[in-house]
Amino acid sequence: MVLQVEDLHTSFFTKMGEVKAVDGISFHVRERETFGIVGESGCGKSVTGLSIMRLLPEPSGQIVSGKIILEGKNLVELSKKHMRAYRGKVVSMILQDPMTSLNPVYTIGDQVGEAVRMHQDLPENMVEAEVIDVLRLLRIPAPEVRLKEYPFQLSGGMKQRVVGAIAMSCRPRLLIADEPTTALDATIQAQYIALFEDIQEKTNVAIIFITHDFGVVARICDRVGVMYAGKIIETAPTRDIFKNPKHPYTIALIKSVPQLDKKDDRLFSIEGQPPSMMNLPKGCRFCPRCHVALDICKEQEPPEVKISENRSVSCWRVK
């Protein structure tokens, strides 16, 4: 077990009150496993990633309670200084937009080299070899040449690989990727996903893949947690999520994604909007949009039910 998150609560304290962006979620990621967190914007998936990195915008964003156990250490209890040493070395992160993740005035070699120097005690003459090694891991062609180039000389796909190289520079145990493929084109996306699998094979890194795109989930994730309004409402192996989803939200979401090999005349659509995080419904959060809601759904939040070794669902309909 590389990462174990237990009952994590993260809130933002704003002028208008407390927003419970992540409201009690638990999951784990094993070595060499890719765990997907899927959900719509505002469901708390990115906040989950930032909480693990302890990179919430302070002072408004705070971890209120819960445990984040990475390699046996509870990150919530680490001091800021300790956490800084962990970040990049044991856990690192790739953000969505490769264009803004790189500093335009430094060369690729400088930026990857900085990450290497920060956490590895290498003599200066070894740093460059290490940088080339990482660039090669990310399958960047001609790394010796790229070293001296600036971000503007690279294409979008290549920049995203450099961002990946920075994240992987110290061979972390856990990599959090927050929508890393969303800004990429379909054919480049396919390349990038294949690259992720390759890196995982070589380094055994555990990956948390945050996305809203079920197509990407199907391709890369081993297990998936579906988030809705700050909660994980269903966790299951990827195959089961697609073949046998249990929660009405998951079912509806998968039905509403248009698929290439099926031509329906009308798409199945979920009516209404996700609830405002300032003003959550009393019972189950999905209840107002749910077609199969029971009376109890309006009153009480459903508990998380473990239905098999790898599956759990929070729905009153699932026993």
Partner: peptide, 17 residues
């Protein structure tokens, strides 16, 4: 220990606002 941390941050924050 965690619930106390929670109330403390909340109070601090209200004071600030």
């Amino acid at each position: 220990t965690l619930p106390t941390a929670k109330t403390k941050t909340k109070k601090q924050y209200r004071g600030v606002t």
